[in-house]
Simulated scan of single mutants.
Amino acid sequence: MQTLLFDETVQAIADASTGPITYQPGVISPALASAWFSALRDAVDWHASARMMYERMVDVPRLHTHYTIDDPGLPDVLREALAVVGANVHASFNSIGLNFYRDEHDSVAPHNDKLHELVPHQPIALLSLGATRTMVIRRKLPPHLKTELELEAGSLLLMGWNAQLHYDHGIPKLRRPVGPRISLAFRVRPTRASETWGG
């Protein structure tokens, strides 16, 4: 079972029976989070996309891109971020998905990661940069317990493979102005899957 290395600031959202899901603020400093955000915002080749929903094509409400860790074009910032995440989570991450939420209108609908696109029993780690956004984590089975978690810059959210069976997670749109946010999603992928999911 992969967990965040022990730290008294770690908040448990779900235990090992349905997760784990844990949240740790302050994994990197605000200054470093700001520097990494600026570097990735300006240097990454961000992509817009569309997908079929309700029998029509709709724009995905965020920008995204993806790297494998053996990509020769992997930005130095992502190598540094991988080292930080690897120091906190025991997993052989080989995939980094980036999502850019430009403002309060960008979002990701409630979802769980597709298990066939993950190596079994390996975790997902989300490192947040930029503005704080709310992640809604909802239990799939009744009584559909819900947690609203404020993902601060420099924080790390860990979701166990098992959590994808029991919980959905999403970033809702907001009615108040909010600044841009970048999330880095570290996964252990089979050698083929591409990155499209958010966090």
Rank of each mutant, 00 (worst) to 15 (best):
R56I: 02
G199P: 05
S183H: 07
F6E: 15
A48P: 04
V60T: 10
M159R: 13
L129M: 05
H121W: 07
G179R: 09
Q122M: 00
H144A: 03
S128I: 01
A50R: 15
R181L: 02
H66F: 10
V44R: 08
A81W: 15
G130C: 03
Y23W: 01
V44T: 07
A14C: 01
L156M: 01
L82G: 14
L40D: 02
E195C: 05
A185G: 05
R51T: 09
T68A: 03
R187D: 10
A35P: 12
A31K: 14
H166M: 03
I69E: 02
L82I: 11
R56W: 02
G198Q: 02
E104V: 00
Q2E: 14
L151V: 00
D106T: 03
A163E: 07
L151K: 04
S107E: 11
I182W: 04
H144I: 00
V10D: 05
V44M: 06
F6N: 14
D103C: 04
R79M: 09
M52T: 13
A31G: 13
P75Q: 15
T3V: 07
E80C: 12
D15F: 11
G154C: 12
A39P: 02
S38W: 10
D71H: 06
E104W: 02
D168I: 11
V27C: 14
Y167C: 06
R62N: 06
H47T: 13
D15H: 13
R56P: 05
S92D: 15
R51V: 06
T18D: 15
R181M: 06
K140W: 10
I137R: 11
G199Q: 02
A125W: 14
V60W: 03
H90A: 10
S34P: 09
L4F: 11
P172G: 11
W46D: 05
H144R: 11
E117N: 05
A35T: 07
V178R: 12
